[in-house]
Design a protein around this nucleic acid. Structure first.
Lengths: 140, 140
DNA sequence: GTGAACTGACACTAGCTTGGTTGCAGTTCG
DNA sequence: CGAACTGCAACCAAGCTAGTGTCAGTTCAC
């Protein structure tokens, strides 16, 4: 949803979008959108303008915002689940597993994040335009 | 927890482990362990033996089981969350976002899975032995 | 300066997932 | 037979997520 919102802001760079407009596109509701955009603002990706005719804008060029930036701003914990609680210290495997898993999982998560970092919001917005242009050419 | 269990089975390759023993190491309980090992068995990674003196064994060499195998056996859906429900078809961005996100997210998830596939259970079990040996040498 | 159109923040709900638990039937073997 | 296992289904509690309602604060057009 965060990436969807960012792509909309990039697509309509010239004006501000309200949380209501973005919520319509997401088939969701404004409060939820503000919650998400609030995280993105805290991460320095977007700006909000209060009051009448307020809304949201990108805080920096779309080509300088990657999917990883959005991911990091809204997703809290690790995606690969660790032990729900520490294993037994009495077991040879138990007392070493947490650390070994951390090393492996962090590497795997970094690989995913690295891949997310290779795509920018500008690229997604561009792809949307391309697809729409092509659809229009073929007669909508 | 699946990887922890597999590593234990690799470490004590010579005998079968019961779900109770594995549960002790995980500080969890046998039923949960059987649930997880059941998935691993369905995926062909382990074997179970019923009845008295029963338990669990690896179904193939530990060096032919990767963390990805375990991950795929127990983890159902994608790790990166998609739209909770389809966005608006009326919006230029909404009607294209799902597909574009799928492409990006699948690529990112594949990157993570590829990294998980590079580490084997045999390697983890070996690291456990190394660390334990080192600890014993330093005087426990 | 009043009211419309926004954001900000908080509290709350419903549904889903996960780890955990109980209970019991089935299997094997001493 | 009975002990020691797995298999399976039902159930529970906690935590998470999307969604909702409400109200206060801000801005601007008139």
């Amino acid at each position: 949803m965060a990436i969807h919102a960012l792509t909309m802001l990039a697509r309509w760079r010239d004006r501000t979008l309200t949380s209501g407009e973005i919520a319509d596109s997401l088939a969701s509701n404004p409060v939820l959108v503000r919650r998400i955009l609030g995280n993105l603002r805290d991460a320095g990706l977007v700006r909000s303008i209060e009051g009448r005719h307020g809304g949201w804008q990108l805080a920096r060029p779309a080509r300088e915002i990657t999917l990883y930036d959005a991911y990091a701003a809204v997703e809290a914990g690790p995606v690969l689940s660790r032990h729900p609680h520490p294993p037994s210290e009495a077991c040879e495997v138990g007392r070493n597993m947490q650390h070994l898993l951390d090393v492996e999982f962090e590497a795997a998560e970094r690989a995913m994040e690295e891949r997310l970092g290779r795509t920018t919001i500008a690229r997604l917005a561009g792809r949307v335009l391309d697809i729409e242009r092509e659809a229009a050419r073929r007669g909508d």
